[in-house]
């Protein structure tokens, strides 16, 4: 299995992350002075710095919220229950087995596993806003009468601020630890510094057979596909695809529908001109029987209207037979899998 470096964190994200980390650590230290637990610094300086750092952090967040809105990265924080149980199970037991992999595959588009999504959401919509709001109230304490807040509430506001500060510290401890649970432990730290994550090229499970259904009435072409992917002696496909893929071949739509009722596949390669069905209808029938399987359409000639139609209706690709090479088809399979992963 080979690895490659994927650009995972943009320059802005890294700037945001590390400056926020610095600010939060400094805020914790100065905050503990303000609350009377530490006295390394003079109170005056600690309080001044606490304010300055807090305002810096708020500015940083204003920029960052803007950045998230503009880039659409805010979607990374939409909570989901999908794979939540698997992730919890992994962290509570699977992680201790060095051979087991994380059930969630991080990609640039989906950086956060469901547990992270929940944790970051709590941080950004509960802990941080309450900290800032209570902190700002604290700073502008003397203007409370103007906005109708009784001054007696100061100790309550301070208590809320302090509680959230402790919540932030707990988050910080967990976050710090979780940064080292990747395999290898320093991978995420490196990624957050360099921006690049060492990614396993393709997380194919080599214990399992990968299956391709070829729906093709031309036996010669079907044989060619088999030769390319079942018993090829030449150039290996890794890391693009596993070198051996099990291929099932059917000649008609009828047979395809039958086999799709019983078996599942990783890909379906579909010639849309079959004896018992022609055109887009062929695709529709197959897709309805294998909703979660990437389907690659194929035909003998260019027909841009039909091609677009097929992609529009959910095909992963539309290939022209006489343009195909082994490598090109392997790429198409690989890309279909990647794309399909995002769509599913």
């Amino acid at each position: 299995m080979s690895q490659y470096r994927e650009r995972f964190f943009s320059r802005y994200e890294r700037f945001w992350h590390w400056s926020q980390a610095f600010l939060i650590i400094a805020l914790i230290v100065t905050g503990f002075h303000v609350t009377g637990l530490l006295d390394w610094l003079e109170y005056e300086h600690a309080a001044q710095w606490h304010r300055t750092l807090a305002f810096s952090l708020i500015w940083l967040w204003i920029f960052t919220i803007f950045w998230h809105l503009i880039t659409g990265e805010w979607r990374q924080y939409i909570p989901t229950t999908e794979k939540m149980f698997e992730v919890i199970h992994y962290y509570s037991s699977g992680i201790f087995d060095p051979l087991l992999r994380h059930p969630f595959k991080k990609t640039r588009r989906l950086k956060h596993n469901p547990l992270q999504r929940v944790a970051y959401l709590v941080l950004s919509v509960i802990i941080s806003p309450i900290l800032w709001l209570s902190g700002l109230l604290f700073v502008y304490y003397n203007d409370w009468p103007k906005i109708g807040i009784p001054s007696e509430l100061l100790s309550i506001v301070a208590g809320i601020h302090l509680s959230m500060a402790y919540a932030m510290i707990c988050f910080f401890v967990l976050h710090f630890y979780m940064a080292f649970v990747s395999k290898p432990p320093t991978a995420m730290i490196k990624a957050m510094i360099t921006g690049y994550l060492e990614v396993d090229d393709m997380e194919f499970d080599f214990d399992r057979e990968y299956r391709l259904l070829v729906i093709e009435d031309d036996p010669i072409f079907a044989l060619l596909i088999k030769e390319w992917f079942e018993a090829y002696e030449g150039e290996p496909l890794a890391p693009l695809l596993p070198d051996r893929i099990t291929i099932i071949h059917v000649e008609s739509l009828k047979k395809a529908v039958e086999i799709l009722k019983q078996q599942s596949f990783d890909w379906i390669l579909l010639d849309i001109s079959l004896p018992d069905s022609q055109g887009i209808e062929t695709f529709r029938t197959v897709k309805s029987k294998a909703v979660n399987t990437p389907v690659l359409m194929m035909s003998d000639m260019e027909n841009e209207a039909l091609q677009s139609r097929g992609i529009h209706e959910g095909a992963q690709d539309f290939l022209i037979k006489h343009n195909l090479s082994r490598r090109a088809l392997a790429r198409a399979f690989r890309f279909a899998l990647e794309r399909h992963g995002f769509i599913a």
């Binding site: 609350t35 109170y43 402790y166 401890v173």
Partner: peptide, 21 residues
């Protein structure tokens, strides 16, 4: 600020941090 207020809150907070740790 600066003199240790809310000792109960500090205790609860410290316990939570220590548990997390």
């Amino acid at each position: 600020p600066g003199r240790k207020n809310n000792p109960l809150l500090h205790t609860i907070g410290s316990v939570l941090v220590i548990l997390t740790l």
